[in-house]
Computed example of a mutant assay.
Amino acid sequence: MPRVWDVPVHDSTRVRDARVAAELAAGLAGLDGRRTAAAALVATELATNLLKHGRGGQLLIENVAPATGPGVPGGMSVVQIAAIDHGPGMADVPAALRDGFSTASSLGAGLGACRRVTDDFELHSVPGRGTVALARVGAARTGGTADTSLPAAAAVRAGGVNVPFAGAEYSGDAWAWVRDGRRTTLMLADGLGHGPEAAFASSAAVEALHRSGHLPPAEMLRHLDTALRSTRGAAVAVAQLDADTGRLHFSGVGNIGARLRTGDGWRPLLSRPGIVGAHRPHTLPEQQVPWGADCLLVLHTDGLPSRWASPSDARLSSFDPAVIAAVTVREASSSARPVRDDTAVAVLAPTRPDRTP
């Protein structure tokens, strides 16, 4: 089930909680002592930075599939650490990442050192809006290469963040992506309600996805409906990119939101009412839209406000999809709009030329 550590960092006592959470996540990922220490170092540094420069914030720690490719059943996972704040932001991100730069009263490691010991590290900051730092630590640093078998417009990567309701141990939301031949599929599932039973339902959807990556989205949802019959059910959305046709196929059941950016505009992709595993509609239409190198797909569960503003930063599409997801969560959240459910955001984006798919 999706185990997520949501650590609010508003005083120095929570820095230790961040370090312990990273160590626990590293244990679940099967990391050795050296890589576990790296994850703990990064979590500690990012938590300290939230206090020193972000006026507090939150640290989301979870196990995700490696960024080098979609996950597979029983495959290895990496520790993902996302630090999110609504602070003053950074005017000079390159300086913050420079070796030797460190914050007062921190470990003296600095963000540059964090970047060196991680598999992936990115920093997105806007003065006056806040900062998102994203790090992943896996068993080994094995830089990959781009998949040259795919057309440039169809080479994609995926990422996401998951925020459990009220700091719960498990989130009822789950996302995953798989690749079968020249089809790449991203799925987001929201188990009915929240808590362990909701997490069980969304986890069942993830397991079923890995057995059905060869199916088109509508057929995949029918397969998931059967797999989720023993659970309380879930809202599920499936987006699949076909590299041969250069088209994105989408089908969804329940209240999973989906927005597609093409060029400078955003358009919604619509799901049908119902619950996969309980009340699936008899007909499942499948939307088809062109996919290009300027496209960006955002899937989100109903923990996000229904009228959230689509990301407007023109630079954002060049960032890791998990950074885009974290910025989306940050921009849509505030103390005036308390979250009443688990919140997950998953993003499908073209692969940058200098990045692995």
Rank of each mutant, 00 (worst) to 15 (best):
R3T: 12
H10C: 04
S12G: 11
R14F: 07
D17N: 11
D17W: 08
L24G: 06
A26M: 11
A26Y: 09
L28N: 12
G33W: 04
R35M: 07
T36P: 01
L41S: 11
V42N: 03
E45V: 03
N49K: 10
L51S: 07
H53I: 05
G54P: 08
R55H: 13
G57R: 05
Q58V: 14
L59A: 07
L60Y: 01
A67Y: 03
P70E: 03
G74L: 08
G74W: 06
G75L: 08
S77P: 00
V79T: 08
V79E: 02
D85G: 02
D85E: 01
G89Y: 08
A91H: 14
P94A: 09
A96R: 12
A96K: 08
R98P: 00
D99N: 14
F101M: 14
T103Q: 13
S105G: 09
S106G: 15
A109N: 07
C114H: 01
T118N: 05
F121Y: 15
F121L: 09
S125C: 04
R129E: 11
R129H: 12
G130P: 02
A133M: 15
L134N: 03
A135W: 07
R136F: 00
V137S: 01
G138C: 05
G144E: 12
T145R: 15
A146S: 14
T148D: 14
S149Y: 04
V156F: 02
A158T: 15
G159Y: 04
N162W: 08
F165L: 15
G167V: 03
A168P: 00
E169A: 14
E169C: 03
Y170F: 15
S171C: 10
G172C: 10
A174S: 15
W175T: 10
D180L: 07
T185A: 05
M187R: 01
D190W: 02
G191I: 03
H194A: 12
A199C: 05
S202H: 04
A204G: 09
A205G: 09
G213S: 10
G213C: 06
G213I: 06
G213L: 07
L215Y: 01
P217L: 02
E219K: 10
M220D: 00
L224S: 01
A227C: 00
A227D: 00
T231P: 01
A234H: 00
H249K: 11
I256L: 10
I256V: 15
I256Q: 07
A258Q: 05
A258C: 08
R259M: 08
D264T: 14
G265I: 06
G265R: 15
W266L: 08
R272L: 03
R272E: 04
G274I: 00
H279C: 08
H279D: 14
E286S: 03
Q288Y: 01
W291L: 03
A293L: 12
D294L: 05
C295H: 11
C295V: 09
H300Y: 09
P305F: 05
A309T: 14
A309D: 09
S312P: 00
R315L: 11
S318M: 09
F319H: 15
V323E: 02
I324E: 04
A325V: 06
V329E: 09
S335V: 13
A336T: 13
V339F: 05
D342A: 02
A344P: 05
V345A: 06
L348S: 05
P350A: 09
T351I: 04
R352S: 11
R355H: 13
P357A: 15
